[in-house]
């Protein structure tokens, strides 16, 4: 994938600012399975069931220590999927201008876990941040063949203003927490 070769550290700050403006929270973490595990445990706890969608983009080994915890479910049945409170997915890209994380919708269930959970924890490699939405559509950053077939740009928690005031957490998660691997 090209992005890591073209990565500009300025985009990280911009990404964090934009994501926070979109009411997501962002935490920078180190590039190791242990660092990821400890951040995930801190965010999700060790007792409540947590759904982990197998990563579509990040190396599966990165999640190995976390996956072994007893409260982590990796192959949920449909009931678990529909009723889970906390869900973890990876993201294949981030967008600096808008603070969006891009999650693929595949058999790995990232699309569903990031939708059904009340709280979504997204793991993003800072090196896969691109400056603008349009950069997902240009061969300059992403060869089209390398993009997931189906994906969603997630910009903060689901929200509505239809009931007369801003409410976060409608059909999708009411909280989005981004673990940014630096």
């Amino acid at each position: 994938m090209k992005p890591s070769e073209m990565f500009d550290p300025k985009w990280v700050d911009r990404f964090v600012k934009a994501a926070e403006a979109a009411a997501a929270t962002v935490e920078r973490i180190g590039r190791s399975p242990e660092a990821l595990k400890s951040a995930l445990v801190q965010a999700a706890g060790e007792t409540e069931p947590v759904l982990l969608a197998e990563p579509d983009f990040l190396p599966p080994e990165l999640f190995a220590p976390f996956r072994e915890l007893s409260n982590v479910i990796t192959h949920p049945d449909d009931k678990q999927l529909a009723s889970v409170r906390i869900g973890v997915t990876d993201a294949f890209a981030g967008i600096a201008r808008t603070g969006s994380v891009c999650v693929s919708i595949s058999k790995n269930l990232g699309g569903s876990v990031s939708l059904f959970a009340r709280e979504h924890i997204a793991v993003l490699d800072a090196r896969s941040i691109v400056p603008r939405p349009r950069d997902l559509f240009s061969n300059h950053y992403f060869q089209r063949e390398r993009l997931p077939e189906n994906f969603v740009l997630i910009t903060g928690p689901s929200a509505t203003a239809d009931m007369g005031e801003l409410v976060r957490g409608v059909h999708g998660p009411g909280r989005v927490h981004i673990l940014l691997i630096i």
Binding site: I105, G111, N150, L153, T155, A159
Partner: peptide, 16 residues
Amino acid sequence: QPLSQYTNILHPPLKM
């Protein structure tokens, strides 16, 4: 909004 909360980019039918 800079982007809406969700921008779905789909090639249905989905594979999952």
